[in-house]
Design a protein around this nucleic acid. Structure first.
Length: 430
RNA sequence: GUGAUCGUAGCUCAGAUGGUCAGAGCGCCGGGUUGUGGCCCCGGAGGUCAGGGGUUCGAAUCCCCUCGGUCACCCCA
């Protein structure tokens, strides 16, 4: 270790060639989103703390113990965003985006921050690619929101995932359901673990998430939300499911899939991947018909999803998908000892102007060492500048693949390189 | 916040019961005669053995603490 400093716990550097993979999956993600009519929005990475307190929920783990909150020099409480939806809604309201037409179909990408103990697929700074459709409660938009990650993951070549969906109803049906559930949980209280006993008071829906065998058995007979949906929610849910079928999005109904907060409504879904470890949800999302109001806006429906990019990258790796073939350096310009630097730089510049990637030596190396370095960089060609050829206005062009080289006039260089490269790529395309 | 586990060169790792134990491979840099790569050969740089304290004549090797990595719980992307 050369440095005494380390990246903060739960953070990491994204280094080539991983950086290439990131770029690639983002590009495909953007394409997919744009194809579905979504436009990118970039919001600040910090917001007034209240945006999150009210947009995520005061009692959530995120707000109570995971936020990076600080006071700036003006005394305002700011928070590094722990998720993307609340800021988007804030922007939607602040900029009156409804006036440019609803639904507003927006997507975002960027870092999120949560102070948790890191583990596989969980970091303190992580990245999400997400989308929100604001202003419509049409079940068709739910199905679109769910179909986008599906289309995206397929495009990437991913296979080992399941889509689980559920409906958690609205205020009308959830309230009565929760009381039924509480009553049931009280009956089986003795069989529940400590955590679940707490949950059955505070947030009974969460009991369904418990991994304890005994709890799972105890609640196997528990009332399920889907049996208590009001007519509106039931119809909505069935429409969404039917549309997913029509769209060819394979899915399973998971009655135990829940959301903690009151303003989450109706559709909830996740994309679960095999083999990712405990944090196996690569994408999560759902409908939030009361969220806009919670942030001070008029009654407005919304649905969205969010993809955990680090988890997605891991899934890609696990499935053995190689996202990109790394671009290769076209030309390394090597100089014979004694050649004016200006001549080398001019050659470099000419190559780059012709859209050929080019590099040269900056370490004062011998020709031999330059060649070795060129090889290490994976260069296709080496152009050797200097000596008698230089006096005659010529350079040596060496093909590192074939080990053949020739001497040619300076002004023939670009043309000759292009010929070889295009001949090769032509052959590859057949 | 809780638990488990790990921490020797850039990377992967050797270093039995404490006494040439500070090493190997890979990588990196350089050289192998006159202006040229990949293989091969030679050489070099690089480590407070995570950090601190303790036990001991003596510790990378034993004990304690701290920090960090990893995985899991909580919760979530």
């Amino acid at each position: 270790m050369l440095s005494k400093f380390k990246a903060p716990k739960g953070t990491f550097d994204i280094i080539y060639p991983d950086s290439e993979n990131l770029e690639m999956i983002l590009r495909i993600g953007y394409e997919t989103l744009i194809l579905h009519g979504y436009r990118r929005i970039s919001t600040p990475i910090f917001e007034n703390t209240q945006v999150f307190v009210r947009g995520i929920g005061e009692d959530t783990d995120i707000v109570t113990k995971q936020m990076y909150t600080f006071e700036d020099r003006g005394g305002e409480s700011l928070t590094l965003r722990p998720e993307g939806t609340a800021p988007v809604i804030r922007a939607y309201l602040e900029r009156s985006l409804h006036s440019s037409g609803v639904p507003q179909k927006l997507f975002y990408f960027g870092p999120m921050f949560r102070r948790e103990r890191p583990q596989a697929g969980r970091y303190r700074q992580f990245h999400q690619l997400g989308a929100e459709a604001i202003g419509s409660d049409d079940p068709a938009i739910d199905s679109e929101i769910i179909s986008i990650p599906d289309a995206y993951f397929r495009k990437l070549g991913l296979k080992k995932y399941r889509v689980i969906v559920n409906s958690i109803g609205c205020v009308n049906c959830r309230k009565p359901y929760v009381t039924f559930l509480r009553e049931f949980l009280e009956k089986v209280d003795a069989e529940l673990c400590d955590d679940c006993r707490k949950r059955s008071q505070k947030n009974p829906l969460r009991v369904f998430d418990c991994k304890e065998e005994t709890c799972a058995r105890a609640i196997s007979e528990a009332p399920v939300i889907s049996d208590y949906l009001c007519d509106g929610c039931r119809t909505h849910f069935h429409s969404v499911l039917g549309m997913l079928d029509a769209l060819g999005v394979g899915h399973e109904i998971e009655p135990r899939l829940v959301r903690g907060l009151d303003y989450y409504t109706r559709t909830a879904f996740e994309f679960i991947f095999e083999g990712l470890g405990a944090q196996n949800a690569v994408c999560g999302g759902g409908r939030y018909d009361y969220l806009v109001e919670a942030l001070g806006g008029p009654p407005t429906s919304g649905v969205g999803f969010s993809i955990g990019i680090e988890r997605l990258l891991r899934a890609i790796d696990l499935e053995g998908i190689k996202p990109v073939k790394l671009p290769r350096l076209d030309v390394f310009v090597a100089a014979v000892e004694g050649t004016p630097r200006e001549a080398v730089l001019r050659t470099l510049s000419i190559l780059r102007s012709a859209s050929l990637s080019a590099d040269t030596d900056f370490m004062g190396r011998s020709l031999k060492a330059q060649m070795r370095h060129a090889n290490r960089l994976g260069a296709r060609f080496v152009v050797i500048v200097g000596g008698e050829e230089f006096e005659r206005g010529e350079v040596v062009l060496r093909d590192l693949d074939s080990s053949k080289q020739c001497t040619l006039k300076n002004n023939e260089l670009i043309h000759r390189i292009r010929l070889v490269i295009e001949a090769k790529s032509g052959a590859n395309n057949e």
